[in-house]
Design a protein around this nucleic acid. Structure first.
Lengths: 145, 145
DNA sequence: CCGAAATGCTCAGTGTGCTGACTATTTTCC
DNA sequence: GGAAAATAGTCAGCACACTGAGCATTTCGG
């Protein structure tokens, strides 16, 4: 009496999903570059010369967390962090050639990995899953604002 | 050219979902007791006197991670860790009265929270989302074994 | 124009979650 | 019965992710 079925708890399932994903990522995409790091690289390909604040909104990561991730990528020479001369508070971020090269390589690998990850679902279910997660995540993030 | 839409990446969405969930958890359920900690409490209500290994399989958490979580709960007096006299390798775990009391309190709160979290979906979509995530997570965890 | 508010970043502290290496105990097999 | 394998736990090390406090810089208001 009293115990609950965790399979009806979206938070528990979300954690398991994320965990399973990051394991598969390590096996199929990269051991050095994590999924959040890829998200940062990808955002900088789309929008170069943004600051950490803007970046954090794009990838939905905290400013502190972004700072860590950016520092790691910077240490590996994948991006450059330059103080904005027009606004001394900002760090302007830009990928290096090396960073762009890595991003290109990972794009194809993530596509391959996502196919494997979502293999248990058919095409309709895949799209549905992504849209449902997106709606719940959007709404929950809204609650904060 | 080259940037990818992260909204088509289940891993990215899973991270956002989990993050949004843990934020809402902190606001609506408890600031002291996290969602994984609740999962451990819940597993011990269902199956008392199991060891950490068995527990880790139940909640889908690593043995190292379980050790940390269990240690924290133990420090707060919510569970007891006793060396199994019949097998000196095992730690047998059991909730204290305090632990059971906390679990009961959190059960009602998590139910309330889950309703808020899934509010953007209708009943069919909720069930569907849980089942789809479950299938993908199960399959991905299978890949490891 | 100058003090106060807002903004961007950093830093310390905590918790989750993994791997890989190590220890201790039990089981298995010759 | 004793060496080898399997099993349970711990520990160090790394990465993500948050909060809250603090620092520097810019902007805003009187």
């Amino acid at each position: 009496m009293g115990a609950v079925d965790l399979n009806t708890h979206p938070g528990h399932l979300a954690r398991r999903l994320q965990q399973a994903h990051s394991l598969l990522w390590g096996a199929m995409v990269s051991e050095e570059t994590t999924s959040p790091q890829f998200a940062v690289l990808n955002a900088l390909v789309e929008k170069p010369d943004i600051d950490q604040r803007t970046l954090s909104e794009h990838v939905h990561l905290d400013r502190s967390t972004i700072a860590d991730v950016v520092a790691r990528l910077g240490r590996r020479g994948l991006l450059e962090r330059v103080r904005d001369p027009r606004d001394g508070r900002r760090n302007v971020l830009k990928l290096t050639d090396e960073g762009e090269r890595l991003h290109r390589k990972l794009v194809t690998r993530t596509a391959r990995m996502n196919r494997v990850f979502l293999a248990p679902l058919d095409e309709d279910e895949r799209e549905l899953l992504l849209r449902l997660i997106g709606r719940v995540a959007d709404a929950a993030e809204e609650l904060r604002a």
